[in-house]
């Protein structure tokens, strides 16, 4: 895989490092020269207008999308086409989707156990114990034997978080986790995410919840047209944005 010359030396404690990342959908240049380094325990919020490439970026980090140029290193493992490496990275990276993507034919408990059973090869009892532990943490343990279709959106998203946590990942990726939820359910999901952040989880979160960004983010990244326009701690980002595009975006989502 080709590397570009813009690569800056990643910090030694970097959990994720991305250098010169470029991606095209057909002829459409969707990610342009992305450089990003995420430290262990760092909490990052990525925002930007729709179509700016923010979801694509985090989907590249666990190889749900293939990139054409650049280098991605997650927890010391360099992403290549090698299936074993990709699976190794995925075991370290949990992901939560906009539309939950729970398995509708499996119970909540089985959703949380399936990868422990087939990937980590844990005994059933142990897998269930871990699953219940995390379901407890997202406050939905009492629904463990129901099916996803029987739960509300907010409950489903919390199960999805628990499912990802069951693999005990080092990094959690959130792809607009609250965008598909009714307003009254957003808080229950955000609360879980805040707790997770407070426990020291490394998090990359694509979201428009600016309140969340202000409370927990160490850094806010603004993307537009497939590139990182501006990144700063929330304090600076919200109060003294530098780029005109950032200002315009903030005025659109914060202004009434």
């Amino acid at each position: 895989m080709a590397t570009t010359n813009t690569a800056s030396a990643p910090a030694d404690d970097a959990m994720i490092s991305v250098e010169g990342l470029n991606k095209w959908y057909g002829d459409f240049h969707v990610l342009r020269d992305i450089d990003l380094s995420v430290a262990k325990g760092e909490r990052i919020v990525i925002c930007g207008p729709s179509g700016s490439g923010k979801s694509t970026l985090i989907r590249c980090l666990n190889h749900l999308e293939e990139h054409q140029q650049g280098r991605i290193v997650v927890d010391g493992v360099t992403m290549t086409q090698d299936v074993k490496r990709i699976e190794q990275i995925r075991r370290n990276v949990g992901m939560v989707f906009q539309h939950f993507n729970l398995f509708p034919h499996l119970s909540v408990l089985d959703n949380c156990c399936i990868s422990q059973t087939w990937v980590q090869k844990k005994p059933r009892a142990e897998a269930e114990k871990t699953a219940m532990e995390f379901l407890e943490r997202v406050r939905i343990a009492d629904q463990a034997h129901k099916y996803p279709g029987q739960l509300s959106g907010g409950q489903q998203q919390r199960v999805a978080i628990a499912r990802a946590l069951c693999m005990r990942p080092e990094v959690m990726l959130f792809d607009e986790p609250t965008s598909a939820l009714d307003p009254e359910m957003i808080k229950e999901v955000l609360d879980v995410m805040v707790e997770l952040a407070q426990d020291g989880m490394t998090m990359l979160c694509v979201t428009h919840e600016m309140g969340f960004a202000k409370t927990v983010a160490d850094r806010v990244i603004f993307m537009d047209q497939g590139q990182i326009i501006e990144q700063a701690p929330p304090e600076t980002f919200f109060n003294h944005p530098e780029s005109d595009r950032t200002k315009l975006f903030l005025s659109q989502i914060l202004g009434h």
């Binding site: 666990n62 190889h63 749900l64 699976e87 995925r90 075991r91 990276v93 949990g94 992901m95 989707f97 539309h99 993507n101 729970l102 398995f103 399936i114 990868s115 087939w118 990937v119 999805a160 499912r163 990802a164 069951c166 693999m167």
Partner: peptide, 20 residues
């Protein structure tokens, strides 16, 4: 999204096919 979710929790391809 089902296949993507299975990949994200690192289920191997044959298990994804068989179980999901």
């Amino acid at each position: 999204g089902q296949v993507e979710a299975a990949r994200a929790i690192s289920l191997p391809g044959n298990i994804t096919l068989r179980k999901i």
